[in-house]
Design a protein around this nucleic acid. Structure first.
Length: 851
RNA sequence: GCCGGGGUGGCGAAAUGGUAAACGCAGGGGACUUAAAAUCCCCCGGGGGCAACCCCUUAUGAGUUCGAGUCUCAUCCCCGGCACCA
């Protein structure tokens, strides 16, 4: 890339000449360098904010990364990868002049630790501190810029006191309610599992098939926020796939509510009950197909089922409902299984046609979505079609795609758009228009209204387990569910030696009478504490709010600190949290905003998901036994080399393949850098060599642009190229050539950068005394560049031209190039395309065959 | 099925519509060494040619363009997520 350099610099030394300067016997020993600087950072508080500094920081930058779940196995390379990328980003901004707050903590409650503790026979209260100690040691060892002074641990009463406080805040705002609901029940974990934690019918944690139970549980009414959670996404600087995943999860759909009046009795010929009390309401996105609704389906659990079922059908209906209720929620919802259902004996009136249509129940209709009832349009909905075929129900065409005969029978459902047919006054209307037209027609008769529905359902936070913060509620026979007064927080989780879950459907805490017996805060009578604990997602939905205020005892967070530090400037984490964690955090933040506790309603200004690390092409997992533990690598090559390698092995947001041998490259780079810079006394004092300088400014330009975009792999490659240029031909480096490189490398390899920076004569940490190098655009310009010459789009030669040469100049030089001339000979030049400083394409018509 | 992300040398990868394979790993050859390690130098997509050079090559097939890894359409395959959501 620096064509002239080789000619100007000393020739390469003859083969085999030792590269190490004789006067420089000191080798790069990462372990020593890293120990020295980690100790110094700690002793001097390099990465720590004092209370006063937090309050007065002028250019605050909150650099957040998803805090770890401290498992017993310790951190693996995948975790290190995530944290290193975030740390590189934070360190860069610090060198660029920001006051970077980079806290870390531990998300240590939850079923995972609890299960491990049960299996290992260690109490979680003993296990977790051990795990945290291991994680802390490992995190320190990789040289993250963490402010340990502000670490949080979600299992400490100091923390979960405020988790409970948030529950109460939402409770008082009417955003928490206790509802009996069918829930997924894992017979192995012996607890309720959230829908989103059931993967393909199996428990996310233990792969046991999940069943169904009805339990009274606490729900947060996140669905009230669906519209805001959706529309705010447009304002966020988040990775697009993450936003898309949230949009899908929220699942907004526009349609209408339509009322189907019930026919009072089968034999009644009288006027079909005008929009009276007895009607079945359905939600549909396709009111334009209303004329094709030939039957209705209620969810088996629908409250109207008992009312409408005729005596003749009662037994079959009861039997069917029983079968369905035995099925777990997930199997129940599994798509693709054969349609089943039974007729209730009742009929409704299609409000568009006035025709009576039968009412069925079937498990393909879900109680939790819409109204739990549908109008079935077998002509234009695949599921309804399949059902109608199975039970011999009429299938009517009411939509015809362009060119289709309105009378053509339907072999399969046609769900697309077209023209309405067989639809009375609407026949001939294009379906997109028809939707609104049908609704406005029926809305005058109070039989329909426009409606928006969301797939997002309320957030169940109850867990019938031990290892979590108790839900701060007291149940009183007289007063009902009474919130624990704020002044009584925290409701401390007692140490219970036997916390094995049982199949009672209640938490192990329900066996600890001394703990759950309480006085009702309202009436003072005998009462009982809520024995369920809350979901781990609640712990992690607000931890970032706590970091700056981690020492605050009187309130969850200090509004003044929040004003300075929040919302979070940069959040980096795994895509496995694209939906739930990020959505719950947004919801809690939004709710706290509405309650006047926060000034912002979106917690994370910028979010980027990092990729996943695989090993030698295979996914890393304990069962495969191919999990990479960082410690031996740090011992052999150093944390800096590991960090650099991880950042180099592929695009950060896409992840990459960890190959054991490949660390040699980055490690060798660090060794060469060390040998290039030390001993400092042998560095040249003059200005940089012009070619090296040009390369330097180009490198600064590239690295400065790419680090904020998390394009670490190419930034590292640029620095490698630059060092290669500095060392080319075994030349001696000048101080001015290496100093900027040391600074640019510092975010990736902070220890060696500190060491070299000190040897270069600085006093104090590079992160406090250095500033990010600037590039001069003037100095990035090459005087002479290589221009590619194409004939008819094929590369036929390269010519050297002065930078900025015009077309005439380029063409003249190209003609002199032998190979180019060969192609021009006897050909007619029809067109010249000249891209300045890049390429010259000569379009010729071939007069004769080339030799 | 739907929604995302991908498919480029032996491998990890790089490339504002403008010189495909930067940077690195592995491999081959060489220097140094009693030897090895370490280090350094050279080579390294496929084919043809003594060479100058030529042909082919970014999953496949079409298209747009002076020019396509990059844009458009269709097809195949891999990874991740969601999945009877009316």
């Amino acid at each position: 890339m620096i064509p002239r350099l080789e000619s100007l610099l000393p020739r390469p030394a003859p083969d085999g000449a030792p590269r190490m300067t004789p006067g420089n016997p000191e080798r790069y020993v990462p372990a020593e360098v890293e120990r020295k600087w980690q100790e110094r950072w700690e002793a001097e508080g390099t990465n720590r904010f004092t209370e006063a500094e937090l309050r007065s920081a002028e250019a605050p930058f909150f650099n957040l990364m998803m805090f770890p779940y401290p498992s017993a196995e310790g951190l693996h390379v995948g975790n290190i990868y995530a944290y290193t990328g975030a740390d590189v980003h934070g360190r860069f901004h610090r060198l660029a002049g920001r006051d970077v707050f980079e806290p870390i903590g531990f998300d240590a409650f939850g079923i995972h630790s609890e299960n491990f503790a049960l299996k290992a026979g260690i109490h979680p209260m003993d296990l977790i501190p051990r795990n945290i100690a291991t994680f802390t040691r490992q995190l320190r060892r990789i040289g993250g810029m963490f402010d340990w002074h502000h670490a949080v641990d979600t299992t400490t009463p100091d923390y979960y006191r405020w988790t409970q406080w948030i529950f109460l805040a939402l409770y008082h705002a009417g955003l928490a309610e206790r509802v009996e609901a069918p829930v997924n029940w894992c017979p192995s974990c012996k607890t309720v599992v959230a829908n989103e934690q059931v993967i393909g019918g199996l428990c996310e944690r233990c792969d046991t098939p999940v069943g169904q139970r009805r339990i009274a549980q606490w729900f947060f009414k996140i669905s009230r926020y669906a519209e805001r959670l959706l529309s705010n996404l447009d304002t966020l600087d988040w990775s697009e796939p993450t936003k898309k995943a949230q949009r899908n999860w929220i699942g907004r759909s526009e349609g209408a509510m339509i009322r189907f009046p019930l026919r009072e009795s089968a034999q009644g010929e009288g006027p079909d009950g005008a929009a009276g009390e007895d009607a079945i309401e359905v939600f549909t996105t396709r009111p334009d197909t209303l004329f094709g609704a030939t039957y209705m389906v209620l969810a088996p659990e629908h409250p109207l089922v008992d009312r409408v079922t005729t005596p003749a059908c009662a037994r079959a209906v009861a039997r069917y409902r029983d079968t369905v209720s035995r099925m777990d929620l997930v199997a129940r919802k599994k798509a693709g299984k054969a349609k089943t259902g039974v007729f209730t004996g009742a009929h409704c009136v299609n409000p568009a046609t006035g025709a009576p249509i039968p009412v069925w129940i079937a498990d393909y209709v879900l109680m939790e979505y819409g109204t739990g009832a549908i109008m079935a349009v077998p002509g234009h909905d695949e599921r309804d079609h399949e059902f109608a075929r199975a039970f011999g129900l009429p299938i009517l065409r009411v939509v015809a795609p362009e060119g289709e005969d309105p009378g053509a029978p339907l072999e399969e459902a046609y769900p697309g758009e077209g023209t309405m047919v067989n639809s009375g006054r609407f026949t001939g209307t294009p379906t997109p228009e028809g939707r609104g037209a049908v609704v406005s027609w029926l809305s005058r008769l109070r039989l329909a209204s426009p409606q928006v529905n969301y797939r997002l359902h309320d957030w169940c936070i109850s867990r019938q387990r031990y290892w979590g913060p108790p839900i701060p509620i007291i149940h009183c026979g007289a007063c009902g569910a009474v919130p624990v007064p704020e002044s009584d927080l925290p409701v401390v989780l007692p140490r219970v030696e036997d916390f094995t879950p049982d199949d009672s459907g209640t938490s192990p805490l329900a066996r600890v009478e001394a703990w759950y017996r309480a006085r009702c805060p309202a009436c003072g009578g005998e009462a009982r504490r809520e024995t369920d604990v809350s979901d781990t997602f609640l712990d992690s939905s607000w931890y970032f709010l706590r970091y700056p205020s981690s020492h605050e005892n009187e309130r969850p967070f200090d509004p003044e600190l929040n004003r300075r530090w929040l919302p979070v400037d940069s959040y980096i984490g795994g895509q496995e949290h694209n939906v739930l964690h990020l959505l719950y955090s947004r919801f809690v933040t939004m709710a706290l905003h509405d309650l006047g506790h926060l000034e912002f309603e979106e917690p994370f200004v910028r979010f980027r998901a990092h990729g996943l690390i695989v090993r030698e092409g295979a996914k890393m997992s304990k069962s495969r036994g191919n999990v990479i533990v960082p410690d031996p690598i740090i011992e052999s090559h150093g944390a800096d080399a590991l960090r650099l390698y991880l950042m180099f092995l592929g695009p950060y947001t896409e992840g990459g393949d960890y190959r054991d041998q490949a660390i040699q490259g980055p490690f060798g780079f660090l060794k060469r850098l060390w040998e290039t810079v030390t001993p400092v006394s042998e560095l040249g004092d003059g200005p940089p060599h012009p070619d090296v300088e040009r390369k330097l400014h180009r490198t600064i330009r590239q690295v400065s642009a790419q680090i904020p975009e998390l394009q670490f792999n190419t930034a590292v490659a640029a620095m490698m190229e630059y060092l290669n240029a500095v060392r080319r031909g075994d030349r001696k480096a000048a101080r001015a050539e290496v100093e900027p490189l040391v600074i640019m490398l510092a975010p990736f390899c902070p220890h060696i950068a500190e060491e070299l920076w000190e040897r270069l004569g600085a006093e104090g940490s590079i992160f406090e005394t250095a500033s990010w190098p600037e590039f001069d655009p003037e100095k990035t310009i090459e005087e002479e560049i290589t221009l590619a010459v194409q004939i008819n789009g094929k590369l036929r030669g390269r010519i050297a031209v002065p930078a900025g040469s015009g077309e005439a100049e380029a063409l003249a030089r190209a003609r002199k190039e032998a190979n180019v001339a060969r192609y021009l000979e006897g050909a007619e030049l029809r067109r010249v395309i000249h891209v300045k400083d890049r390429l010259l394409n000569l379009v010729v018509s071939v007069a004769q065959e080339r030799p």
